[in-house]
C-alpha cells in the first residue's frame, strides 16, 4: 500500500519519514564535524558544499513531505490522551524546527547576495541581506535550533521505543511495515 489509512502508514509516508531521519542526523553530524575542519583539509570546501546542497534538497523534500502529510489520512494515535497530545505537539515542532533550520541556513550563506550552488546543478538565488549581521544571527539560530531538533528527535525515538517495549502497541511497527486493522490493539 502506497497511501496511508486510518490504521497504517503507507509506503510513501514511511519512506519519507525514514529518509528524512537519516538525512537529518547525517546533516547534523556533517555540520558538527565540518565547522572545525582545518584550512588545509581536503574536506574544507567539499563538506560545507555538500551540507548546503543536501540541506536545500531536504528542504524541498520536506515541503513535499508536509503536503503529502496534509493530503493524506493519518493512523489514529495510540496511548493515553496526554501522550497523544504530547506526540502531536512534538511532531509539529519537528516540522517547524526543520523549516526554521533550512531557512536560517539559507540566510547564512546568502547574506552577501551570493546564491547557494546545489551540487553544481543549479543555484538557489539570494534574497540579499534582510537584516543586519545576518550571517551571525542566522548562524546562531541555525546551530541552536539544530541542537533542539536533534534533542526532540531523540525524545521522539525514545517515545516510539517506549510504545514498542512497554506499551507493546503498534506505534513503531506501523512505521516499519504495513499493518492491518486487526493488529491494532
Amino acid at each position: 500500500m502506497l497511501k496511508n489509512t486510518t490504521v497504517s502508514w503507507g509506503r510513501i509516508s514511511r519512506s519519507l519519514h525514514w529518509l528524512s531521519a537519516v538525512v537529518v542526523f547525517g546533516l547534523f553530524a556533517l555540520g558538527w564535524w565540518m565547522v572545525d575542519l582545518n584550512y588545509y583539509s581536503d574536506w574544507y570546501k567539499t563538506a560545507p558544499h555538500w551540507h548546503k546542497s543536501i540541506g536545500i534538497l531536504l528542504a524541498l523534500f520536506t515541503l513535499a513531505r508536509v503536503l503529502w502529510r496534509l493530503a493524506q489520512p493519518t493512523p489514529k494515535a495510540l496511548g493515553k490522551s496526554w501522550e497523544i497530545a504530547a506526540a502531536h505537539l512534538i511532531h509539529c515542532l519537528l516540522y517547524l524546527l526543520m523549516l526554521a533550520i533550512f531557512f536560517s541556513g539559507y540566510l547564512i550563506s546568502t547574506a552577501d547576495g551570493r546564491g547557494i550552488e546545489i551540487f553544481d546543478w543549479f543555484t538557489l538565488p539570494s534574497m540579499g541581506e534582510l537584516f543586519q549581521n545576518q550571517e551571525d544571527t542566522a548562524g546562531d539560530v541555525h546551530r541552536w535550533l539544530a541542537y533542539c531538533l536533534i534533542g526532540l528527535a531523540v525524545l521522539h525515538a525514545v517515545a516510539a521505543l517506549k510504545h514498542h517495549i512497554f506499551d507493546k502497541d503498534q506505534t513503531l511497527v506501523r512505521m516499519l511495515r504495513n499493518t492491518k486493522s486487526k493488529d491494532i490493539q
Binding site: P48, I108, S109, T110, A111, D112, R114, Q134, E135, D136, G139
Partner: peptide, 10 residues
C-alpha cells in the same frame, strides 16, 4: 565581501 568568511573571521 563574503558573508561566510566574515562569520568565520568574527
Amino acid at each position: 565581501n563574503h558573508a561566510e568568511r566574515d562569520k568565520h573571521l568574527r
